[in-house]
Every structure is written in C-alpha cells, then in structure tokens.
C-alpha cells in the first residue's frame, strides 16, 4: 500500500493564497455569467487581502478590503445596468478549461527563481503613521488634489444639459 505523503512545508499557505488569487482573477475574466464573474472577482480581492495579512502588512490588507468592498458594490450596480440583453452561460467544460488554464498560468511564478539583489538590506524602523503623515504628507496632499479635481469635474459628466455648441448652426 502506498501512502501519499503531502509535504506541507513545500506549499505554504502564502503559496496557496497566491494560487487562489491567480485562479480567481483568471476566472473573473473568463466567466461569461456576470454574477459568477463578480463573485470570483470578490474572492480574488479577499485572497489578495489575506495574502497581505500573511505578509504581515495589516494596513495594506485593511485598505485593500475597504477598496474591494466599494468596487464590488459598484460592479453589481454596473452589471445590473449593462447586462440585460444576452446572459449566456458557459458549459461545465468551459469552466474546467478556465481552471486548468489558470493553474497553468500560475506555474511560472512557482518554478522561476530570480536572483534579485536589493540595495536596501537593513530594515528601517519606521512606524506607519510617521511614514505616512510626516515623510509622505506631500503625496497625501497630492492625492487630495486628485480627489478634488475629480469632484470638480464629475458634474460635467453627470449633469444632463442641453448645450449650444459653437459652430453647429
């Protein structure tokens, strides 16, 4: 009798999360049904966030989750508006094919090993708030300016109006 031994160390949970991430990302694109597609997309974000938690980057993980919730809500709204005419479903064969392609795609990241050399070797003991609000406050302000620009302009897109256009008599 042969006992299959699965070596747990080889496939750590981060690797598993990365695998789920790639598969769900591919399936989100691959699925024809909008509902499944969005579900898969949401799963991708959740696994991405879990991946960040696994990397011990809590701020990034939480931020990613917050963004993801908003995005998925918007996507459900968009799918309500747009996909009314033809909602075709793929066969089971298609779905399995999608999973297989996604798994194939994830192989390179497991077998290729780049020998990168980093210049920064010693960890800098920065606290997150200090890095954000002291060192990078200019970029945060710049970020605010982007938001302000969008807030100023969004009315131009959304407001229904009849305009008289020069040169169109």
């Amino acid at each position: 009798m042969v006992i299959l031994e699965v070596n747990v160390d080889v496939l750590s949970y981060l690797d598993a999360l990365a695998l789920i991430l790639l598969v769900t990302a591919f399936l989100a694109i691959h699925f024809k049904n909008a509902f499944y597609s969005i579900i898969s997309f949401g799963a991708m974000f959740v696994s991405l966030s879990a991946f960040y938690f696994g990397l011990n980057a809590q701020f990034a993980a939480v931020f990613q989750l917050v963004v993801a919730v908003g995005t998925i809500a918007v996507f459900f709204l968009v799918s309500e508006v747009f996909t009314s005419e033809k909602d075709e479903d793929e066969t089971v064969k298609d779905r399995i094919l999608g999973v297989i392609i996604a798994l194939t795609l994830s192989i390179p990241s497991f077998i290729i090993d780049l020998k990168e050399n980093h210049l920064l070797l010693s960890p800098r003991g920065l606290s997150f708030p200090y890095a954000m609000w002291r060192l990078r406050v200019l970029d945060v302000i710049a970020q605010g300016v982007v938001a302000l620009t969008l807030a100023l302009g969004i009315m131009i897109i959304l407001k229904r109006r009849s305009v008289k256009v020069m040169g169109e008599k």
Binding site: L138, V145, V146, T149, L150, L152, G153, I154, I157, V163
Partner: peptide, 21 residues
Amino acid sequence: TLFIFWEVSAAGSCFLIIYWK
C-alpha cells in the same frame, strides 16, 4: 510625487475634453 501630480493633470484633462458632451 511626480506620478500623483501627473495624474491630477491627466484626470483634469479628461473633463476638459468631454466638456460639451
């Protein structure tokens, strides 16, 4: 910083382009 400020101008220009709808 360059990238974010550059996005300000890129985002602003899209509204200028669409202005007459």
